[in-house]
Nucleic acid binder design. Structure first.
Length: 344
DNA sequence: AATTCGGGGGC
DNA sequence: GCCCCAGAATT
């Protein structure tokens, strides 16, 4: 890893660029650590423009830690619907309750206390500490790794723990030269706007410090192993309507889409087997079933291939039947896609 | 250290 | 198609 020649000037040039060129975003209009916490949780593996409408709705419905702590998990999940990585919804809910119970409702300022909140790791804790409290604590995410790997010509896979540690150490040295809040956000804003996959070096305030730029080797950094291949899972998925209402069941408490609502579906079985399993589970009597094409949905590490059947049943009660446009909790995009497919 | 968690955007 | 994204928790 090549050192940065004038670290103090580097920190200033980068931060000054940020102060003049940063985007005006809702979560930058506040210093409330609770809102910074919410924004950072939503931003984990999620692009800014994707999370913005969620941030607006969420802060409107839950303007205080107490209001979030007093809500039901289903309501929190419902507001999170479509954003993905749904355990984050459980984490922000649990963290709000932790803060009520253990910190008298006041968001903690101590770094270790922040990182002990649910769903808050080293990056998120550093981001809250530096951005909300203006403390010189590094916050190293994917943006920062990409930027710094190019600046230093980082010679090995940036996904390795050792690489992240080393960059964290470098950022920890740099951040104390500047306003920590500006510096942390500057690194990420540069990664988001300028130092992207095909970098816009002509617009970069720190290109004169950058090893990759000076060697014209931007495309060689960051060094990263290629992603693992996805596995395809085959399902038979049922759309069951009764009195104009839709049957949904609660998914298991662990695994993919944990605890969410879902369409009944059966993996690797014949239609006859799947129907029988559905009858046994629900106690319904299946009257008719009609093939309705197929829907694919791609997750980060697997693919669902769903063969869709519309099914009519005789049911003894309305339990588990819902108005499709007024669900009490969240439904995955995969199954929203199925419903949209069937409606056409 | 590797795997498991969603979903959308860019090219 | 493939990569990437203001990652964390679990195995």
């Amino acid at each position: 890893m090549n050192p940065i020649k004038k670290p103090k000037q580097f920190a200033y040039d980068l931060s000054d660029w940020y102060r003049h060129h940063h985007r005006k975003l809702a979560f930058r209009e506040t210093n409330d650590p609770y809102f910074i916490f919410l924004s950072e949780m939503m931003l984990q593996q999620t692009q800014v423009q994707t999370m913005l409408p969620y941030f607006e709705q969420f802060t409107k419905r839950f303007p205080t830690i107490q209001s979030l702590a007093e809500a039901s998990l289903d309501e929190v999940l419902k507001l999170w619907e479509g954003l993905g990585y749904y355990r984050r919804a459980r984490y922000v809910h649990e963290s709000a309750r932790m803060i009520m119970d253990e910190h008298e409702g006041k968001f903690p300022e101590d770094l270790k206390a922040i990182q002990s909140l649910k769903g808050v790791g080293k990056y998120t804790a550093g981001a809250i500490h530096s951005i909300a409290y203006n403390k010189p604590t590094p916050a190293v995410d994917g943006n920062v790794m990409r930027v710094m790997s190019r600046v230093t010509g980082y010679p090995s896979d940036i996904m390795e723990t050792k690489s992240i540690r080393e960059i964290e150490k470098l950022v920890a040295q740099l951040i104390h030269y500047e306003e920590p809040s500006d510096f942390t956000q500057a690194l990420m804003e540069l990664g988001a706007l300028v130092c992207v996959r095909t970098p816009k070096c002509e617009a970069c305030p720190i290109r004169d410090y950058c090893f990759a730029y000076k060697q014209n080797k931007q495309s060689l950094y960051p060094i990263k192993k290629s992603a693992k291949q996805k596995v395809t899972e085959h399902y038979i998925t049922f759309v069951v309507e009764h009195n104009n209402q839709l049957y949904l069941s609660r998914r298991p408490k662990t695994g993919l889409l944990a605890n969410m609502l879902g369409l009944p579906q059966y993996q690797g079985q014949s239609l006859e087997q799947a129907l029988k399993a559905f009858e046994t589970e629900t106690g319904f009597v299946v009257l008719t079933s009609k093939a309705f094409g197929q829907v694919d949905h791609v997750f980060s590490h697997r693919i669902w291939h769903m063969r869709i059947y519309k099914v009519s049943v005789h049911a003894k009660s309305n339990e588990h039947f819902y108005d499709a446009d007024a669900l009490p909790s969240a439904l995955s995009r995969a199954h929203q896609k199925v419903l949209a497919h069937v409606k056409k």
